[in-house]
């Protein structure tokens, strides 16, 4: 059997093994490959950087553990950045598996800011079922959808929420999202109807669709996948898991490109010989 024929019939488990090495080795021995910041990610940073102290920001963490490696580092960096800018952050989630994500991100981001007070500097409203119906409802009255926050305290008793009851009162919305309901729905219902300023971080799969919204300025910044999160970590000056994972992504992509090239050569060579 010729070399190319053997290549074309290679056991797929060998490819899995090679990919395993490509993932594990750079993690154990980081290469620190350089990367630059895209304009769409820089735009998110600039939007938050331009906020005055006390600006009201809504952060809807619409993702779950399945997309944690891509989205979660961004949520942590964004919260850290918002707390640094002394913004007043209202946090919520439209995903039933989102609450543990929010709690973990808050726990990590708050460590640097021991003086932060829940209900004054930030508040977590919790999870709400209803998808876009919730967005439309929040445009009319946040209290009608969230009578209490996640702790069970009535919104009227929370200083941060005293005169805050409609989506249009927020200066900015940050939307880490990995599907539906997520950025698409926030654009359709909150941006188009209430003219909210939205910046988003999406999974790589979703980001391909959201680029159109960024191009039309319906969202003002976009971080796509793990590279987007790594770029945001770079801008905020705190390297996290996304930055550490970028080496692995680079090596992994090179390996996949090599697989595609070798596989195609093997296909064409063996087809020519069999003909």
């Amino acid at each position: 059997m010729g070399f190319w024929l053997r290549v074309s019939k290679i056991d797929r488990r060998i490819l899995f093994l090679l990919m395993g090495f490509a993932i594990v080795l750079p993690l154990l021995h980081p290469l620190g490959l350089p990367f630059s910041v895209e304009k769409s990610v820089q735009d998110i940073y600039d939007q938050i950087e331009a906020l005055p102290p006390g600006a009201r920001v809504l952060l809807s963490a619409d993702y779950d553990a399945a997309s944690m490696p891509e989205i979660h580092p961004f949520t942590i960096s964004a919260l850290r950045h918002l707390f640094r800018k002394k913004a007043h952050v209202v946090i919520m989630t439209l995903w039933y598996a989102g609450p543990p994500m929010v709690q973990d991100a808050l726990d990590i981001a708050k460590k640097e800011f021991p003086d932060l007070k829940e209900g004054v500097d930030y508040d977590y409203l919790g999870f709400k079922e209803g998808k876009q119906i919730v967005m439309l409802g929040m445009g009319q009255s946040i209290r009608s959808l969230f009578p209490t926050d996640a702790r069970g305290i009535a919104l009227d008793d929370i200083p941060l929420m005293h005169d805050l009851d409609k989506l249009e009162q927020f200066d900015l919305m940050v939307n880490p999202s990995s599907g539906s309901p997520g950025t698409r729905e926030w654009v359709q219902y909150a941006q188009s109807r209430y003219h909210m300023k939205i910046v988003a971080a999406n999974t790589a799969v979703q980001a391909a669709d959201m680029i159109a919204y960024y191009g039309s300025r319906q969202i003002l910044g976009l971080a796509g996948g793990m590279p987007g999160a790594a770029q945001y970590e770079k801008l905020t000056g705190v390297a996290g898991t996304a930055t550490a994972g970028l080496d692995v992504l680079n090596i992994g992509h090179l390996l996949i490109i090599a697989f595609v090239i070798v596989g195609n050569i093997a296909y064409f060579v063996t087809r020519k010989r069999s003909a």
Partner: peptide, 11 residues
Amino acid sequence: FTVMGRLSLAV
């Protein structure tokens, strides 16, 4: 983008 997303999950 999809390949990158799946690889990110593995990472």
